[in-house]
Amino acid sequence: MFQTAFTLSLTQFARTLSLPERLQHSPARNLALEGLRQRNLALDALFYDVKSITPEEAFYISDSLAAEGAIMLIPPSGLGALTLCETIDEFVLRGGGDARALAVAGIGGSALGAAAFARNVADAIDAPVAVVVSGYGIADVITEALGGSFFFGHLRDLRPLLESLDDLAGRPKVGAQSDGTAARTSLDTRTVQALLADPRLSFRLLTGHSKGNLVLSAALHNLSKQDEGRVAELARHTKIVTIGTRIAMPPVFRDVVDVMGEWDWFGEINSRAFIHADRRVAQAWHHTNTDLGGHLPVTTTLREILAASPIAESPKTAEHQDETLGAISKPAMPNTEAPSPLVQDGRQKARVETVQKAFPVNIAAGTQPAGFGASDDVQSTKPH
């Protein structure tokens, strides 16, 4: 529990240091929301395995805790630092094409909780994971006052409609901004949808926790209305694992595993009654913090699920490996045994080291990767 408390305290301290800078933009909005954002940070520290985030990473994301729509690339533990991106183009540039999983967290919606959940997933698959920050703004305050944070499945259409208030109050422009055709879709959902629709990205695992499953479901349903071909392609090669809440996905997705804790009454209240749990974790509640009793172990549970039903290899990755093998030796002996798509430690470490060399991060020196200039409260000054 000490590690959880240390990470939380460090993040809160670092965020306090950046408060004067954040108050330069929309001071009334930021002052009104800061206390609630700090509360949600504490909730995420309880519900997620935040000790998996290093002190340097916690400091790095401290001023972007509520940057709804921001995208992070989370490598497995010990294989490099996380990367925070404003746009999908930046995400791809910084190595997002290597991500084989997309995760969406719930509960507090802070970047710390999202990073911790994604780190658990990355450790389970031994590969980088993309994760979208849900954030916390004016729309969340109103829906929470109406009970939306508890019965979020029944008030899912209210938050997107209220997000226009956040835009009027000066919300930073990160993530997949609306072009006017997605007014009824929240920013985190739009960003997840844009990631799934991007042909440069190839996810083989989609997973969410709690309210994150609702965001994932909404993004997939919206995408199915706009691009049936893309959704059909995703459904052929993608496994979906929901944790803590059972939410209906588009019918075309057949490989869906719904995971619930044995004691998770909160998740049951917010789940669809007609969907039955495929896996119940004994003596587990809604939280995933391994420092606390009654937790749902995300990494262990995912490993067991994937061992029973592995994720398909990415066609792009397989093609690249074939070209590489052909260039090294020819003729090549036929490979009668397909390599594991997830356990590729050597290749993964090389990829992460390449990204680190291209985009060095020196948190101790107080610097950030070049090109990232937006917090949850400060408009980006980076040229586009």
Results as ranks from 00 to 15, higher is better:
F2A: 08
A5N: 14
F6L: 11
S9R: 08
T11R: 02
Q12H: 14
A14M: 07
A14Y: 03
P20Q: 06
R22W: 06
L23E: 04
H25K: 10
R29A: 13
N30I: 09
L31V: 14
L36W: 01
Q38I: 13
L43R: 15
L43F: 15
D44G: 13
Y48W: 12
V50F: 05
V50A: 05
S52A: 15
S52W: 03
P55N: 09
E56L: 09
A58V: 02
A58D: 02
L65T: 14
A67F: 03
G69Q: 07
L73V: 14
I74D: 01
P76E: 06
C85A: 07
V92P: 05
L93Y: 06
L93T: 12
G96A: 04
A99G: 03
A111I: 12
A111H: 05
D123W: 01
I125H: 07
P128I: 03
S134D: 03
Y136T: 00
E144L: 09
F151A: 15
F151Q: 14
H154D: 10
L155Y: 09
L158R: 02
E163H: 09
G170F: 05
G170P: 00
R171W: 06
Q177I: 15
S178I: 10
A182T: 13
T191I: 08
V192N: 02
V192S: 01
A194P: 05
A194T: 07
F203M: 07
R204T: 14
G212A: 01
A218G: 02
E228Y: 04
E233A: 12
R236S: 10
T238I: 11
R246H: 10
A248L: 08
D258W: 14
D258A: 15
M260Y: 02
E262G: 09
F266K: 11
E268V: 06
I269D: 04
H276M: 11
R280F: 06
V281S: 03
V281T: 05
L292C: 04
L296D: 07
P297R: 00
R303F: 14
R303I: 07
A307V: 12
A307S: 12
S309D: 15
K316P: 02
E319M: 12
H320G: 09
E323P: 07
G326Y: 11
G326W: 06
S329F: 14
K330P: 05
P331M: 07
T336I: 09
P339T: 00
S340V: 02
P341M: 10
D345L: 06
G346F: 13
E353A: 15
E353G: 11
P360C: 03
I363E: 01
T367W: 04
T367Q: 11
Q368S: 07
P369W: 04
A370R: 12
G373Y: 06
D377W: 08
V378E: 13
T381I: 13
K382A: 12
